[in-house]
Design a protein around this nucleic acid. Sequence first.
DNA 1: CTCAGATCCTGTGCGC
DNA 2: TGCGCACAGGATCTGA
Length: 279
Amino acid sequence: MPELPEVETTRLAITPFLMNQTIRRIHVRQGRLRLPVSPELHNGCQGLHIVAIIRRAKYLLLQLSDGFVLIHLGMSGHLQIVAEGTLAGKHAHIDLVLESGDILRYHDPRRFGLWLYLPHSPYQHPLLAHLGPEPLSDLFHGDYIWQRARNKKQAVKSFIMSNDIVVGVGNIYATESLFLSAIHPQRPAGSLTETECDRLAQHIKQVLQQAIAVGGTTLQDFYSPDGKPGYFANNLYVYGRKNQACLCCQSTIDAARIGGRTSAWCPQCQPLDNDLPIT
DNA sequence: CTCAGATCCTGTGCGC
DNA sequence: TGCGCACAGGATCTGA
């Protein structure tokens, strides 16, 4: 569920309920996430105010009147605003209860997420200190990719999914961006031309912006217990379309695991190599 | 240093 | 209907 557009949509959706609110208490039902939930969050943070709700990469940061809460949704986490007294489901691990009576409820079946309390500047924290630029910022552009990709043999798909290169590009949007850029995902990152790097940067931005723009759909099922299937599913050209016809040229979509993640591509629209024979 | 693979955990969907 | 297996939107760690 949570790629960067989902996290941003979540941030926008919860902000009106959290902004300037006072925390009554935090109830942790299951504290064993990717890292243990910070002890400060177990029945802690009473009386602190929520000053700002910030996103960095796929992290959400609740800036409190004292310290920060760092939240990551992992693979299966999601946040929901529920009324007091709403029955907690099997995987409703954390409730952040506000004086308003609203509850920010965290669900996460696979428990790859994070809830940490950081007393000081969160950007110095090891989890955040080495992150690359935001993909939608001016710091991320074709020439940046070109410079960072030089001499790298790593598959370009793994490369753009590396958080020290650029943050927030998950498996879906990496796959789609490469299709739109006509770049085969297994190409060594260092083999990209400057023109290809420009195209790639442009399409990563485009795909993420489009997904954020239709985040309104997510807003709907954000409050309802049963979510809809992916709102962006209609816009997908190759992700999840193995053995189906390419929407542009009718070739059969190919797929393989690259860096441990399933990757799909069109062999016609995204040639592996223009000149050299495959050895 | 670089890169590929294993790993954390539960749910779902498929073939048999 | 049940069982076993493969796979899932992430990110870190290990080791070659």
